[in-house]
């Protein structure tokens, strides 16, 4: 059992996120060598891919908490699952925006409907955006918690489909960096990528902890208000 309070955990994670992300961005922009094929626009990779992987991790975390809710019937997992899906949706939106900027810089277009990877990620994002519509259309209680949990679990199936889509596509312009032979980049590039990935994961964990603490405080305040009035 963890002995640290949510406040100190949130502070530690926030500091880790600032250090790792600051260091990662510095490595990506100043230290990593320039890509021979794409030139400077390839440097968007160091922020775009870690954010996309973090979005997948958040959705996966939300699904895990949803499974725990359905398994144990403990109410706290509902809020945890909801917060993780919320984080995943924010990181998903950032993936679409940074990806669109990279597409414009590399391919000359903001979006390509012919790319399965892009379209599947958009579907995944829209699916999780609809999660909020579903959640807030049902009154608070066990029915809403169960419905949200089942929906979050269904969504997680789309993650491997979205992730593997690029490998299943026959004609694509989206680059494949991670293959069975390992990462297709230099050691410096991979090191910068790993630091950026650790930074975005720490950022997501810090935001998750802080948002969850805020939501729990809000719930307890509401309870206290009902008791006093």
């Amino acid at each position: 059992m963890s002995t640290s309070s949510p406040n100190s955990r949130g502070l530690t994670l926030s500091l880790a996120a600032v250090c790792l992300l600051g260091g990662g961005v510095a490595l990506a922009l100043l230290w990593a060598p320039e890509d021979l094929d794409q030139g400077i626009s390839q440097r968007i990779f160091y922020i775009h891919v870690p954010i996309a992987l973090t979005a997948y991790a958040c959705f996966g975390w939300g699904a895990w908490k949803a499974l725990r809710l359905l398994w144990t019937r403990q109410e706290r997992y509902d809020l945890e699952s909801y917060t993780a899906v919320h984080q995943g949706t924010i990181f998903g939106l950032l993936t679409l925006v940074t990806g669109s900027i990279w597409a414009r810089a590399s391919w000359g277009v903001w979006w390509s409907w012919g790319e399965r990877q892009l379209v599947l990620f958009l579907i995944l994002f829209l699916f999780y955006s609809a999660y909020f519509m579903l959640r807030f259309s049902v009154d608070e209680g066990p029915a809403r918690a169960n419905l949200s949990a089942v929906y979050a679990l269904f969504g997680v199936v789309l993650i491997p489909v979205s992730f593997l889509a690029i490998r299943l596509a026959e004609n694509f312009i989206h680059p494949v960096v991670f293959t069975r032979d390992g990462p297709q980049m230099s050691g410096e590039m991979f090191a910068a990528f790993l630091v950026c990935l650790a930074g975005t994961l720490a950022l997501a964990a810090a935001l998750y902890t802080n948002e969850l603490t805020g939501k729990r405080l809000d719930g307890r305040l509401r309870e206290l208000r009902e008791l006093l009035q």
């Binding site: 400077i40 954010i51 950032l94 900027i101 810089a105």
Partner: peptide, 17 residues
């Protein structure tokens, strides 16, 4: 817009968010 500006735009979008 040059490549540098696109890179800056991507990083600034994340920072602002």
């Amino acid at each position: 817009m040059s490549g540098e500006r696109y890179v800056a735009a991507a990083y600034v979008v994340v920072l602002v968010a």
